[in-house]
């Protein structure tokens, strides 16, 4: 079953049932990532947004249904081939003790390498460019251990960029960062989308961030997609209350003129 919207999308899923062992998270899910979009998935805790991202990145195999990447079922590609088309920044990664910044970023070249092609000039150039794009070129000689949380997150993002994939999937890239570094990370993502032409899919916690940066918003609740589209038209007080169970007012963000969510002061109402 292919709808006209799918034809224009490199990454989409149909009739997806997503489950961990016996625990079903989502059923009959249909999702389309519009090409050249900055798609953001939001929803309450445990609504299945990370699970959906894992399915889209082939990290989780759907119990039913298929994810299609560039016209083929994603599971039918060799693992390295997927990694040349789609990059994933998971929620948590482990930096081996004492590994250098450049060494870690260089690992992003794995899908392009082989036994006889371990470190070409192109690898070198791409790694340099990825570090440049994420603003960590000055840190290349440092150990990842020594870096701050914000710098570290940039290193991981640079590693994913070094994969040179048109599609980038990011699972909560701003978690554990303070507000300045959160905005910094999101600005960087927006730059990758607008200036470098990547299609981005990110799971975000903060609705206001999502409204500011997303060109396409997917709102999830209890494993189902309840709304999607341009944040300016999708985000309403009714929707937020329905999804999060929180009464809110929507005002105009004075900086970006996108919807801004302000929770209703329930204490004042009770007085």
């Amino acid at each position: 079953m292919t709808t006209p919207a799918d034809a224009a999308s490199r990454l989409h899923g149909r009739d997806l049932t997503l489950a961990y062992d016996q625990r079903v998270i989502s059923q009959d899910l249909a999702v389309t990532v519009p090409d050249n979009s900055f798609t953001v998935i939001v929803g309450p805790n445990a609504c299945g947004k990370s699970t959906l991202l894992r399915a889209l990145s082939r990290t989780l195999r759907p119990a039913r249904g298929h994810v299609h990447l560039d016209g083929r079922v994603i599971g039918s590609y060799p693992a390295k081939e997927v990694a040349r088309r789609l990059g994933l920044l998971p929620q948590s990664s482990i930096a081996p003790d004492g590994i250098g910044v450049a060494d870690l970023v260089a690992r992003g070249r794995f899908p392009h390498q082989g036994f006889l092609r371990q470190w070409s000039k192109q690898d070198e150039a791409v790694v340099a460019e990825a570090m440049e794009a994420t603003g960590i070129a000055d840190l290349s000689e440092r150990s990842v251990d020594e870096l701050s949380g914000g710098q570290r997150q940039r290193v991981w993002l640079a590693m994913v960029l070094a994969q040179q994939t048109p599609l980038l999937l990011l699972d909560e890239p701003t978690t554990y960062l303070d507000i300045a570094h959160q905005m910094d990370m999101l600005d960087l993502c927006a730059e990758l989308h607008a200036e470098r032409g990547h299609t981005l899919v990110a799971v975000l916690h903060d609705l206001n961030h999502a409204c500011r940066y997303a060109t396409h918003l997917i709102v999830m609740k209890e494993g189902a997609i309840v709304a999607e589209g341009d944040p300016a038209t999708v985000v309403t007080a009714e929707l937020v209350e329905e999804v999060f169970g929180l009464p809110v007012r929507i005002i105009d963000d004075p900086e970006t003129h996108t919807p801004m969510i302000v929770p209703v002061d329930r204490r004042a109402a009770a007085r």
Binding site: A128, S140, A180
Partner: peptide
């Protein structure tokens, strides 16, 4: 608040350390 970003500086070496 943003960490310094200096486009155009490419002092960094990219070949893994010690290799």
């Amino acid at each position: 608040l943003a960490p310094p970003r200096r486009p155009g500086t490419s002092g960094g070496r990219t070949t893994p350390r010690g290799s």
